[in-house]
Simulated assay, not measured.
Amino acid sequence: MKEIEEKAVHSFYNGMNCAQSVVTAYADYLKFDPDMALAVSNGFGGGMGKMQKTCGAVTGSFMVLGIYNSKKHPGNIDARNATNEMIQKFTANFTALYDSLDCKALLNCDFTTQEGEKEFLDLDLKKNICSKCITDSIKLIEVLTEE
């Protein structure tokens, strides 16, 4: 999974948002169209439409878990139930690490303002928070898919 982490972080630093970087990093591993994944996850960065709600690394992870279970379980209801269970476990584990799923709380700044944008850049939160949320999300996915 280290390769997936590296691919995701590389994508994040090269123009993809946090959700896109997580989802597309799994395209080869789970054998799905990376262009479609890029498009579907487009509006989830910056906490869903840059509203600083649920972290994009988290929503991207939820998408990956859905794809994983859709490939693993032949029926939609089975896939959905397995996905819901994994999302609940993921949420508990991510919250144990970061105390929140909320982008604004994770960053402790409002990057929708000029002051917040400056703080985001000055504190290098992209590196110090966002990239860690991405790699930790991938680690959590790995644990859940190995159970």
Rank of each mutant, 00 (worst) to 15 (best):
A92C: 04
C109E: 11
V143G: 09
C103M: 02
A27W: 06
K2Y: 07
G43S: 15
A25E: 02
Q88E: 06
K118H: 10
M48S: 02
A96P: 03
M48P: 01
N14M: 07
T83W: 09
K7G: 09
I134R: 04
L121G: 03
A105C: 07
I141Y: 13
V40S: 12
Q114Y: 07
G43F: 09
F94R: 04
E142C: 07
N84P: 00
G15Q: 09
G47M: 05
C133T: 02
D99R: 03
M36S: 15
L97N: 14
I141V: 10
D28T: 14
K50A: 09
D122T: 10
F111G: 01
D28Q: 15
Q114S: 13
V64Q: 12
Q88R: 10
T112F: 04
D33E: 10
V58F: 03
E119D: 15
P34V: 05
F32N: 14
E146C: 09
N128K: 09
N17G: 14
D35Q: 07
F62K: 00
P74V: 07
G45K: 05
L30G: 10
L144H: 08
D102N: 12
K2W: 03
G49W: 04
G45V: 00
T54N: 06
A37L: 05
G47I: 03
P34G: 10
A37M: 10
L144E: 08
D78V: 10
S100G: 09
F120A: 03
L121K: 14
P74G: 02
Q88D: 14
F12M: 02
T113W: 14
E115L: 15
K71N: 09
I134A: 01
D136I: 01
N128V: 02
L38I: 04
N42Y: 15
T83M: 12
I4Y: 13
S11G: 13
Y68L: 01
E5P: 00
M1I: 11
D124T: 07
F62M: 09
A79D: 02
F94D: 04
T24E: 13
K127V: 00
K50W: 10
V22N: 14
C18I: 00
S11M: 10
G49K: 03
S21N: 05
Y98Q: 02
I77G: 05
V40N: 11
K72Y: 10
Y29K: 15
Q20M: 15
E147H: 15
D78W: 10
F44W: 13
K126V: 01
E115F: 08
G43L: 12
G116I: 11
V22R: 05
K127H: 11
L121M: 14
M63Q: 06
E119K: 11
G45R: 06
D102G: 03
S131M: 06
L30M: 11
C109R: 14
M36E: 15
F90C: 04
I67F: 09
T24A: 13
L106H: 07
D35N: 13
L106V: 01
T54C: 11
A19I: 11
V143S: 13
L30A: 11
G46I: 00
S41W: 05
I67Q: 04
D99K: 11
H73W: 14
G75S: 13
G66W: 03
D122E: 08
K89H: 08
Q20L: 12
